[in-house]
């Protein structure tokens, strides 16, 4: 038994150790559409500073990125929501790992309406009732007598999940909500639809009007900006994450260290987000 097991197992273990310790220079980053522009800017700036390094960035949504992390088709998953316990269980089963979470930036989920819409602020309760279909007309929240047209993100999106869990308190979106393939598509739809309302990252708020959000009827409305998101007065803010299977090493570690450096964080601010710390 000893002879056979040593003959069979030792070469395999040796090969495993050699291959396992080897890592390539290309780092793949996949996931959150909210983060994709920021991640591309990071990759471009990093590659310009580190000739020879290749950082490949693609979107698809937080769920897609985390799924790719589990099945091994990406090195880093971008996510605009924390990893779910079911996703962590998959990592535990396949890699014996809890995943490594890195907070890369902060974001305020911005509510957009068409620039001709007279409504300027909404409470969290009103937003919940609008998106769950309880409030269906703008005149119920101080606007004109017209039907509210809902735009949201696809269910693979971290923004979709974050908004559902934190604004809708886990309730389902109204069936009439149109789920768009990206935040840019939401902004585009709202800019063309005078009765539309949508949500997405602050970085995309171009050509539409931002709504001030009130925690409740008694508190003043707050718009998302660096100060209100940093001091927590804007009620719908969140972290933007990078997830890895294991502790980063090699090129991935250098890239993440650079993302968290003042230089990387300055790019996050330039794109429209806020520093993680």
């Amino acid at each position: 038994m000893k002879i056979l097991s040593a003959k069979v197992l030792l070469p395999i273990l040796g090969a495993a150790l050699v291959v396992g310790a080897t890592s390539g220079k290309t780092v793949t980053v996949k996931g959150s559409d909210t983060m994709v522009i920021m991640a591309q800017r990071w990759a471009e700036a990093y590659m310009a500073k580190h000739p020879g390094a290749v950082i490949q960035v693609t979107g698809g949504g937080s769920g897609v990125g985390l799924s790719a992390l589990v099945n091994g088709s990406t090195d880093i998953a971008n996510a605009s929501r924390p990893m779910k316990s079911s996703e962590m269980n998959q990592l535990k089963e396949r890699y014996g790992s809890l995943g490594v979470e890195i907070k890369t930036a902060k974001d305020g989920i911005t509510l957009y309406v068409n620039e001709h819409n007279p409504v300027n602020e909404l409470t969290l309760e009103q937003l919940r009732e609008i998106y769950t279909g309880k409030i269906t007309n703008w005149n119920q929240v101080g606007g004109s007598n017209s039907k509210i047209i809902l735009y949201g993100r696809e269910n693979s999106s971290g923004t979709f999940a974050y908004f559902r869990d934190n604004v809708l308190k886990g309730k389902d979106y109204a069936p009439s909500c149109q789920h768009m393939p990206g935040t840019a598509a939401v902004v585009n739809a709202v800019s063309k639809d005078k009765n539309g309302i949508g949500y997405g990252g602050a970085a995309y708020a171009k050509g539409v009007k931002e709504i001030a959000v009130k925690k409740d009827a008694a508190t003043p409305g707050v718009k998302p900006n660096a100060q209100t998101i940093k001091n927590g007065t804007y009620p719908i803010s969140r972290y933007l994450y990078m997830y890895l299977r294991n502790r980063p090493s090699g090129e991935a570690k250098q890239f993440i260290d650079w993302v968290l450096s003042p230089e990387g964080q300055a790019i996050a601010v330039k794109v429209g987000y806020f520093p993680a710390k």
Binding site: G96, S97, R247
Partner: peptide, 12 residues
Amino acid sequence: TYFSLLPIGGTV
């Protein structure tokens, strides 16, 4: 028990 202490991969 799950550890992610080693850079070579998770330990269970």
